[in-house]
């Protein structure tokens, strides 16, 4: 189920330290998003918490290990775990990243343990289309694919990431999860750091109807000369808020998520960030009208 882009829907990423908050406090956001792999166990307290949270909030399942851009097939055991969770939770959104994670080592399949970037080539586009189609068919769900932050670049890339994602969605029926902070990180690391311009270039290559979700996050300031690391450890930066306004102007009020993974603040701080996002949406929509 995708939400029409006239509704203002804002959620937060739910992490372990906030499990008690989500169950005991009144509903303050429209949805919560969890990392799928954290709930691959067949039982236990975490899954029980998510099942209870499901009664109060729509859930978005955000996967981090599928590696849709991998040349190696995604293992069946992984897909089966994801399918079991999907059937149990019935998420309203399901997302993954435009990256690779699987490789071979001495004949054995291994997992990279990280979101590794891919070269944006026609060959890799074909591979990712096949993987996305296979996963969507297996799960019976539409996937939303997120742009990633990267710390290396491939000389052979001849497509922009946005062009790559637009083509991927056009061929597979998947949608885009637009992570504004990832565009900002890549802008600072490889494009001279004019974030407003980077966002502008990125979003104009995505069809208006292609974006189904937006992620907002903040990251630590690096030492001089170092690359920016997308650590999700800070409040959303002013640059990212500005990029968010640019995206809203183009795509309308798509569901938006505040992501925060490290140096996790109190639940109330996340709620404040979500409320700020809501205010930004209302302000942009009012201006558009």
């Amino acid at each position: 189920m995708l939400v029409s882009n006239n509704e203002v829907i804002v959620g937060v990423g739910l992490r372990h330290p906030h499990f008690a908050d989500i169950l005991t406090q009144p509903k303050q956001v429209d949805f919560v998003e969890v990392h799928s792999e954290n709930f691959f166990g067949q039982g236990g307290a975490a899954l029980s918490m998510l099942t209870q949270a499901r009664e109060k909030y729509p859930i978005s399942l955000h996967s981090t290990s599928m590696g849709l851009g991998s040349f190696q097939d995604i293992p069946q055991h992984y897909l089966e775990s994801l399918k079991r969770l999907t059937e149990q939770i019935d998420p309203f959104l399901m997302s993954e990243h435009a990256c690779f994670t699987w490789g071979k080592e001495q004949g054995r399949l291994i997992h990279s343990g990280d979101l590794l970037p891919i070269a944006h080539t026609q060959r890799n586009l074909r591979v990712m289309c096949e993987q996305v189609e296979r996963v969507q068919s297996f799960l019976g769900r539409q996937l939303i694919i997120e742009n990633v932050s990267a710390y290396i670049q491939f000389a052979e890339s001849h497509l922009d990431e946005a062009e790559f994602l637009a083509e991927l969605c056009q061929r597979t029926g998947a949608k885009v999860l637009l992570d504004i902070n990832n565009i900002a990180v890549n802008s600072m690391n490889f494009e001279g750091g004019d974030i407003q311009q980077s966002v502008s270039h990125y979003i104009e290559k995505l069809p208006v109807e292609s974006v189904a979700q937006i992620h907002l996050a903040g990251c630590s300031t690096p030492s001089s000369g170092d690359l920016v690391i997308d650590d999700h450890a800070c409040p959303v930066s002013d640059d990212v808020w500005h990029g968010y306004k640019q995206a809203l102007t183009r795509f309308g009020a798509v569901p938006t998520l505040i992501e925060w993974d490290n140096n996790l603040p109190a639940w109330s701080v996340l709620i404040d960030e979500a409320n700020k996002a809501r205010e930004v949406v209302h302000a942009v929509l009012a201006k558009e009208i």
Partner: peptide
Amino acid sequence: LFENKSGGDDQQILLEAI
């Protein structure tokens, strides 16, 4: 540790480099 294959060489090389 890593073997190359006809497709995905760039991915294998990156994995090996990491």
